[in-house]
């Protein structure tokens, strides 16, 4: 099917959309949650898996990441040390420039590998919060210096 698309004299720019519409003709059957999805088109389209992104969820918050990105979390990760490799297994979307595979209840972990290195646990710059109590004219000054965690995407590939 792919070969026949490339043979036809379509403009390079609009090729992607043609490919996309060509692929959508056989309606994909909803895969069983444990079944590994067929991500062949993503592999073809992603420049040797370089231009590939994933939407991974950490504490149910989505992060769109590519390889080498840095996730900045506004809290301190507990029970993990700096330098540890974390496996991000809750991935909702894997996509390239032209194709997206999306599964809201999580793509099975056997389809991809997405790991992050815990590179840093620091704090944000210090600032001051002034607190006012009723019937007291004085303001309390509180120092605030929230924690910050940096995760670097170490590996992302389709298996």
């Amino acid at each position: 099917m792919l070969k026949s698309i490339f043979k036809t004299n379509v403009r390079a720019l609009s090729q992607a959309s043609v490919m996309r519409s060509a692929y959508s003709l056989p309606k994909p059957v909803a895969p069983v949650s444990t079944e590994v999805p067929d991500l062949k088109l993503l592999k073809f389209d992603s420049n040797g898996q370089k231009d590939l992104y994933a939407i991974a969820k950490i504490n149910n918050i989505p992060f769109l990441v590519t390889k080498g990105d840095k996730i900045v979390l506004p809290y301190k990760i507990k029970n993990h040390d700096v330098g540890e490799k974390l496996n991000l297994n809750n991935v909702v979307t894997i996509g390239s420039r032209n194709f997206t595979y999306n599964k809201q209840d999580g793509i099975p972990a056997s389809a991809f590998q997405l790991t992050a290195t815990l590179t840093e646990i620091t704090k944000e710059p210090k600032y001051y919060v002034y607190k006012k109590k009723p019937r007291c004219r004085r303001l309390k000054t509180v120092e605030v210096e929230p924690f910050q965690t940096h995760l670097t995407i170490d590996e992302f590939k389709l298996l």
Partner: peptide, 18 residues
């Protein structure tokens, strides 16, 4: 645990060079 870089406030989620 720190890297020695200046601390910064980051109002986004992901820092990317790609």
């Amino acid at each position: 645990h720190r890297s020695g870089n200046e601390p910064f406030k980051f109002n986004h989620k992901v820092l990317s060079n790609n």
